[in-house]
Design a protein around this nucleic acid. Structure first.
Lengths: 254, 254
DNA sequence: AACAGTTGTTCACAGTCGCAGAACGTGTTT
DNA sequence: AAACACGTTCTGCGACTGTGAACAACTGTT
């Protein structure tokens, strides 16, 4: 089927497609997945059966769902990132001190991946969760990363992922993006003024390696009603940048 | 090769073996994994290449490692469990109030799976992490679950997993186990008195569904020096049981 | 500098095993 | 009771996976 490049395991590709569809749906049956993926029922069944036998998926309440074995893999992948251990307490402090929602994101394969989030006393409820992947151009965290990536890398990423508009105000042309990134470099931090969710403002600072290239970013998000004036213009940005700085230092000297 | 039961995808089984080995090692090369798993280099390579093309594994610092895509799957699996959302704040309170380490564990396929842990002010550092799987017979959390499982289910689990001795004091015969489980049922909570780690004591209470069958457990762990006397004999047990109770109530009426 | 030892990667072959579609058993709906 | 849905089983063909040997690139040794 898949006329892919050579030396690849087609069956594994099918398995992964099935798993991804199953994750999207939360839980689903054989027929449902077969229709969705345009595969024969028996094919989907074989894969699900194998996955179930290896206990990577469960059969509960008359439908299949993702098993907890993936949790172990996920946590391993996260712990492997040196940045997680170092940044976690800083992000927690950020949340505690501002009372808002604080996030840690890293770049992988040109996408942003949320690694950790901490909620302050009055934090808003957002749909972000650890492991979630987002386009780098449509959050303050992602823009902070892009601003401190080599230009050829930004080219690659935009080539691959494009600049899909999530909302009416998402940056969607390369010119806009370049302007924004230049502004971020000047300021030293990125903002999101209702671009992702109207009424929500975010402030993000990049975490760079000794070469000056971004590997991730930290942010604070809160409602426009609280994120305004001095708070939004200097207090929070300073606090976020200082957190990023501490993380950078701990990363290089440890 | 794998003379398994019918209708299963052998290639997928191989992929999963490779992924598991890769997770164990943290990061590894083709040859290393091939030797470990007793597979031809080229086979391991094909699978890793496919996984890398789909971006489920990364190639970093001259070796392969598990990618962050698994984090998304893991979190999805965890969020799917109703118990996680409900229990998380309770476990956090448990940690905050006792100052020790608090854990949430559920049973899956006869093993215990840690779902969440929260550290109090003076919490000890343990090797437990979310997603980690442990034998049910060798922790207080697991024993609390076993004590409130139908006897035929306990038979199944012991048949499948046995009672491997992790330390000198691990319960390793069925008689010992039955005695211990009876004692737990009488008390309403389980303890671990240095069985897993000498100098460490744990108190765990089961979380049961309306039928009275355990679906998981919560615990508090701390050093023997602090977990003694009234604290160990009644204060902590009471607090842990009450947390379990709140979780049960929130699970059934929501 | 040539060599023996790694490593990850490529290649071509052959036998197997995954894919597909149709049939089955069961339960629910009409 | 018939029609339909579901998950599961069956069977055969042909593509694809698994294999072992060869390759290119490095490393360290002689």
């Amino acid at each position: 089927m898949g006329a892919n490049t050579a030396n690849t395991i087609g069956a594994l590709g099918t398995s992964l497609r099935i798993l991804e569809a199953l994750k999207e749906k939360g839980s689903a049956g054989v027929t449902e997945l077969a229709n969705e993926l345009d595969l024969p029922k028996s094919t989907v069944y074989s894969h699900l059966r194998t996955l179930r036998e290896h206990e990577y998926v469960d059969w509960q309440d008359e439908s299949y769902c993702i098993g907890l074995k993936f949790l172990d893999f996920g946590e391993h992948a996260r712990d492997r990132m040196g940045i997680y251990d170092v940044a976690k307490p800083e992000v927690q402090s950020l949340a505690d001190e501002t009372g808002e929602l604080a996030n840690l994101l890293v770049e992988e394969h040109g996408e942003g991946v949320y690694l950790f989030r901490a909620k302050g006393e009055q934090a808003v409820n957002l749909d972000t969760h650890a492991g979630m992947r987002v386009g780098l151009h449509c959050t303050s965290l992602g823009k902070a990363v892009l601003a401190y990536l080599p230009e050829e890398r930004v080219d690659e990423i935009v080539d691959r992922w494009g600049l899909p508009a999530r909302t009416a105000t998402t940056i969607s042309t390369r010119e806009e993006l370049d302007e924004e990134l230049a502004a971020i470099r000047e300021r030293g931090y990125a903002t999101d003024n209702g671009e992702r969710l109207s009424g929500l403002r975010c402030v993000a600072a990049p975490i760079t390696n000794p070469d000056g290239h971004a590997i991730g970013a930290v942010s604070v998000s809160g409602p426009t009603s609280r994120m305004k004036g001095e708070t939004f213009r200097s207090e929070v940005p300073e606090r976020v940048r200082s957190a990023a700085n501490v993380i950078e230092l701990n990363l290089t000297y440890s």
